[in-house]
Amino acid sequence: MHAAGVVAPDGRAWLLTGETGCGKSTLTYALARRGWPVLGEDGVVLQHDSIGVIAHGWHDLLRVSIELAEWFPELRDHESQVDWQDTRHRVAVGATFNKRAPVAGMVVLQRDSRDALSPITSTAALATLVRQATFLFVPDNHAQSHLSVLRDLVESVPCFTLHHSPAQLACIDATILGACA
């Protein structure tokens, strides 16, 4: 699944999804700085078993744009490692990575000038995931089971859209933890 995965203090994962450039890595790093382990910055593997949907990390890498140094001053220490060929001028940063966690919820990110968190229906959430899941359109014997796992995900956890401004860099943990309050 095209999503970042982070693990909340209660041990359950939140999946941050959205189009490329929507802020997945940025908000993942904001959460990692606050002690939330990371499952992945751009992809997690989903498994549906008897206790629910489990998200597995598969790539221990977190990269964020050096332009975020305005908000995260420690990034300036990495300036010499920036990949300037990369249009987003990203640099690899440290984080704690977890291997797996049961999924607590999903958030569809959209950059905006304001901050607003809103619940979305299961159908709207699945349509969002399908739009980004190019692997679903491979006409093999697994396409229906892949779609079913995504369906099980959006049916089993609360889903939200988050319009987010830079203000979220300082409070994304409270936003997520408050989502189900």
Binding site: S122, V130, R131, L136, F137, Q144, L147, E155
Partner: peptide
């Protein structure tokens, strides 16, 4: 055609046209 029924609707995919 692939489909997923949900509590509040359904999502359909067409593997040939690549539309959903």
């Amino acid at each position: 055609a692939l489909s997923a029924s949900l509590s509040d609707g359904a999502v359909l995919l067409n593997l040939y046209t690549k539309r959903y």
